[in-house]
């Protein structure tokens, strides 16, 4: 394997593709799952709300690295079932751990956003004869989206960089590729080169969120 600039760039890009896929799929699944957990923990049915809060406590209270180990290794060790076998097994395991972890963080942001809407609005909607679901969909949701945009952008940017943790179960994301192929052979500069990949990616995300905030800034006095 070559160690010239071009071939290193190409092989790092391959790792970065895995990083981006992990990032994209995690967002895709954890955003809706987070909403489900948020509704669960706000539920009037106490056991459900306790269960959701317990899950959030455990997931937020333990390191993501540990969760990756648990998801990938524990099913095979304790129950002798190989859930994550095959070529993409490691990636799927990492995805599951990331989705659960991020859904829990998102659920708390959602909950904060939803609970910040004044009670009066629900009462007004009720007076107008709107159902609960109607109220949420037409009155509450978009206000919540506006309010949580800033904390969400924070989490999303953290997620970009957290993907590098997937290397602990040997997922071939960009840092793992670098560690195995270059760092282990004494090449240090690719490590800093990787920093540029992330910087550009996060830069694009920052612009995107700024655009969204501007878009959603109607009704602001």
């Amino acid at each position: 394997m070559g160690t010239d600039f071009l071939s290193i760039t190409l092989s790092l890009l391959e790792g970065f593709e895995t990083t981006c896929t992990l990032f994209g799929l995690t967002l895709l699944f954890s955003l809706p799952l987070g909403l489900v957990i948020a509704f669960g923990s706000m539920s009037k049915f106490k056991p459900l709300s306790w269960l959701c809060r317990l899950v959030v406590w455990v997931i937020r209270g333990t390191p993501l690295m540990l969760q990756l180990f648990v998801v990938f290794y524990v099913p095979g060790m304790l129950f002798h079932v190989r859930i994550f076998s095959g070529e993409d097994g490691r990636f799927t395991a990492a995805l599951v751990a990331f989705v659960i972890n991020y859904a829990c963080y998102f659920s708390e942001i959602y909950r904060g956003g939803i609970e910040s809407i004044p009670k009066g609005q629900y009462e007004a909607a009720q007076v107008l004869g709107m159902s609960k679901w109607q109220t949420f969909r037409t009155v509450i949701l978009m206000q919540v989206v506006k309010r949580i945009l800033a904390p969400m952008s924070n989490e999303v940017i953290t997620l970009v960089k957290d993907t590098s943790l997937a290397r602990v179960i040997a997922v071939a994301e960009i840092f793992f590729v670098n560690e195995m192929d270059y760092l282990s052979r004494g090449l240090v500069w690719p490590l800093f080169y990787i920093g540029a990949f992330f910087l550009i990616f996060v830069g694009v995300l920052t612009l995107l969120f700024r655009f969204l905030e501007k878009k959603l800034s109607y009704y602001k006095i």
């Binding site: 990938f72 290794y73 095979g76 060790m77 002798h80 190989r82 994550f84 076998s85 097994g89």
Partner: peptide, 8 residues
Amino acid sequence: YLELNSGS
């Protein structure tokens, strides 16, 4: 050993 015992 973790890899081996978990069957991966």
